[in-house]
Structures are given as C-alpha cells and as structure tokens.
Lab assay of single mutants.
Amino acid sequence: ETWTVFRRYSRFREMHKTLKLKYAELAALEFPPKKLFGNKDERVIAERRSHLEKYLRDFFS
C-alpha cells in the first residue's frame, strides 16, 4: 500500500522532535539531516525524500 502525504520537510522534523520528547525510544530513528545549501536542487530533494521515506517505514514498523 502506498500513501502520498504533502507536507513540508520542516513539519516532519517538528513531528519527529515532538514525538521524541514523548517516546524516548524514537531517538534511535535517524531523521534525515537538514541541508543549508542546495535544498532546491532536484538531486538533494530526491535524496531527502528517499531518506524521509526510510525514516517513515522504520517509524511505522
């Protein structure tokens, strides 16, 4: 099953920080790092999307 969620990266990062405070075991999940430069580059966006998808798969498993 596939879901499509339209949210900004910052909202996922905020969710991760909030949940990590409540559920300490989530700290073990690696959240994709923020890029200061090149964040509009298609390659960077695709890489971030891939890392975010892995994070979410790990989160829900």
Rank of each mutant, 00 (worst) to 15 (best):
V44N: 09
F6H: 03
H51R: 13
T18C: 08
S61L: 10
L26V: 04
F31G: 00
T4K: 08
D58E: 07
F60T: 01
D41S: 11
T4N: 15
V5F: 11
P33F: 15
V5D: 07
T18M: 09
I45H: 12
L56E: 00
L26C: 09
R7C: 12
E14H: 12
K54C: 01
G38L: 03
D41G: 11
L21W: 02
T18D: 01
I45V: 10
F59P: 02
R43P: 10
T4C: 12
F37E: 04
Y9W: 11
F60G: 02
D58V: 09
R13Q: 04
E1K: 06
E25V: 03
I45G: 14
R7A: 11
F6Q: 04
L26A: 02
S50A: 07
E47W: 10
L56V: 10
R7T: 10
R13F: 13
A24G: 03
W3V: 03
F6W: 09
V44P: 15
K17S: 04
N39C: 07
H51A: 11
E53H: 11
F59T: 03
T2C: 03
E53A: 13
F59G: 02
P33V: 13
P32S: 13
A24R: 13
F12L: 12
R57Y: 04
R57A: 04
K35Y: 09
R48P: 12
E1R: 14
A27G: 05
S61M: 09
L36S: 02
L36D: 02
R13Y: 09
T4I: 06
W3Q: 01
L36C: 01
V5G: 14
T2N: 05
F31R: 01
L21Q: 13
M15A: 09
S61A: 06
V5I: 09
H51D: 01
E47H: 12
D58N: 08
K54D: 03
Y55V: 09
Y55L: 13
R11W: 14
Y23F: 15
H16S: 09
F12M: 08
D41Y: 11
P33E: 00
H51G: 14
E53N: 15
E47N: 12
R8D: 06
A46P: 14
A27W: 04
F31C: 02
Y9E: 00
R57M: 03
L29H: 04
K20Q: 04
P33D: 00
E14T: 02
S10L: 10
Y55I: 07
K20C: 02
R48V: 09
T18S: 08
H16D: 01
S50Y: 02
D58Q: 08
P33T: 10
K22A: 07
A46W: 07
F31I: 02
Y9L: 11
F12C: 07
K20S: 04
S61V: 10
K35A: 07
Y55E: 00
I45Y: 06
H16C: 10
W3G: 11
L56N: 03
D41H: 10
L29V: 10
K22Y: 04
K54M: 05
R8Q: 11
R7W: 11
L36A: 04
K34A: 15
P32N: 14
Y9R: 06
E25A: 05
E42P: 05
L36V: 04
L52E: 01
R48S: 10
M15V: 14
R11E: 03
F60S: 02
S50R: 05
F6I: 09
F59L: 07
R43V: 08
H16L: 15
F37W: 01
R57F: 05
H51E: 04
T18W: 15
L36F: 10
L19C: 02
D58P: 12
W3P: 00
K20M: 01
L56D: 05
R43D: 05
A46L: 05
K35V: 05
K35R: 11
R11Y: 07
A46C: 12
Y23M: 11
K54Q: 04
E1D: 10
K54L: 06
R43F: 06
K17G: 06
E25M: 04
Y9H: 08
R57L: 04
K54A: 06
D41C: 12
A24T: 08
D58F: 11
R48G: 12
Y23Q: 04
A24V: 05
E14M: 04
K35Q: 06
R48K: 09
R8H: 07
N39F: 06
R8C: 14
V44W: 12
V44S: 15
R48Y: 06
R57S: 04
L26D: 02
K22Q: 01
F6M: 04
L36T: 03
E42G: 14
E53D: 08
G38C: 03
G38T: 09
E47T: 12
H51S: 09
F31E: 03
R49V: 04
E42R: 12
L19A: 01
H16Q: 07
E30A: 13
F12Y: 03
R7P: 07
P33S: 11
E42H: 03
L56M: 07
K35I: 03
L21G: 10
H16G: 14
L19G: 00
Y23K: 01
K22V: 11
S10D: 06
R57C: 06
E25Q: 10
K22G: 03
E14A: 05
Y23N: 00
E14R: 02
S10E: 01
L26E: 01
W3A: 02
F60C: 06
Y55G: 10
A24F: 05
S50P: 11
R7F: 12
E30H: 07
Y55A: 10
N39D: 13
E30I: 15
S10T: 13
T18E: 06
A24S: 06
L19D: 00
A46Q: 10
W3D: 10
R43L: 05
T18Q: 15
E14W: 01
K22M: 08
A28P: 04
K20L: 02
K35L: 07
R57I: 04
Y23L: 14
F12I: 11
F37I: 08
N39H: 11
E30R: 10
A28Q: 06
P32C: 13
G38D: 01
Y23S: 03
V5T: 12
T2Q: 03
S50Q: 03
S10G: 09
P33K: 11
L56G: 04
K54W: 03
F12T: 00
K17D: 03
A46R: 12
M15K: 02
L26S: 01
A28F: 08
T2L: 14
R13A: 12
P32R: 13
E14V: 05
M15L: 14
E53Y: 15
L21F: 02
D41N: 12
F60R: 02
D58C: 10
K54Y: 15
F31S: 01
E1A: 01
A28D: 00
S10K: 05
G38K: 05
K22C: 06
L56S: 03
E42C: 11
I45M: 11
R49I: 15
T18G: 06
E30L: 15
D58W: 14
E14Y: 01
N39Y: 05
E47I: 07
F60L: 09
H51K: 15
L56A: 09
E14K: 08
L52P: 13
A27T: 12
R11N: 08
N39Q: 11
S61G: 09
K20H: 04
E42D: 10
A28L: 05
I45T: 13
E47P: 12
D58S: 07
S61K: 10
S10H: 00
F31Y: 05
W3N: 10
F59K: 07
L19W: 08
Y23H: 08
R43Q: 10
K35G: 08
A28H: 02
A46M: 09
R48T: 04
H51I: 05
S10M: 10
F31T: 00
K54P: 00
V5S: 10
F60K: 02
V5E: 03
F59S: 00
R8V: 14
Y55T: 10
E14S: 06
K22N: 01
R11A: 14
R43W: 07
R8K: 15
F60I: 08
P32M: 13
E14C: 05
L56C: 11
W3K: 09
S10V: 07
L56R: 02
E25R: 05
M15H: 04
Y9K: 09
